[in-house]
């Protein structure tokens, strides 16, 4: 019996830069401190990298998803900077979703020549989840560091060919 052939779709760097730029704009601007972006890794593990993750999927001329994943304490500190006050009970997952929404929303506007629609954010609390990819798609993990610690931005984007 012939094995199914799954085409590997190379991730184009042109897709990544708008997300990194958007992340930097959010940190430098609203959050008020810089973020360092490390060397890209090909993510092989389908689980979220850290404790709390905001997931946005997009469809259109490209399809894929972006995940921003934080250790809980880092998310909490960033959340305080986002709101400019102590966090009310239960609001942290919502803020993580908003952060993902802002990063992807801004990136979308600079993904030239692509018409995409983004989903409302989904927030995953915990690591015991599997985030599935488009068949054959690769996921790039972008390690990030801010003054509160490390987190990741994970991107999987492929052209939507019929």
């Amino acid at each position: 019996m012939a094995a199914a052939v799954v085409t590997k779709h190379a991730f184009k760097v042109e897709y990544m830069q708008p997300f990194v730029d958007s992340l930097r704009t959010l940190f430098d601007g609203h959050l008020g401190h810089p973020v360092q972006v490390g060397k890209l890794n090909l993510k092989v593990d389908a689980h979220p990298s850290y404790d709390i993750s905001g997931v946005i999927t997009f469809t259109g001329t490209v399809i894929g998803r972006a995940v921003v994943s934080f250790p809980y304490d880092v998310a909490e500190q960033i959340g305080k900077d986002y709101l400019k006050m102590d966090l009310p009970d239960g609001v942290l997952p919502d803020i993580v979703g908003e952060l993902a929404n802002i990063i992807v929303g801004r990136a979308k506007s600079t993904l030239h020549n692509h018409q995409i629609t983004i989903s409302p954010p989904t927030v995953i609390v915990g690591k015991n989840f599997t985030i599935t990819l488009q068949r054959g798609a690769q996921c790039l993990e972008i390690p990030c560091t801010c003054k509160y610690g490390n987190f990741t931005l994970e991107l999987s984007i492929v052209e939507n060919k019929p």
């Binding site: 908003e98 992807v104 929303g105 801004r106």
Partner: peptide
């Protein structure tokens, strides 16, 4: 978070009175 210029134009044409970016 919809930052595209076309989204702003579309909203204003549909009757929005202002447009703020998150």
């Amino acid at each position: 978070t919809e930052a595209e210029k076309m989204s702003v134009i579309k909203a204003l044409q549909a009757g929005a009175n202002g447009y703020l970016l998150k």
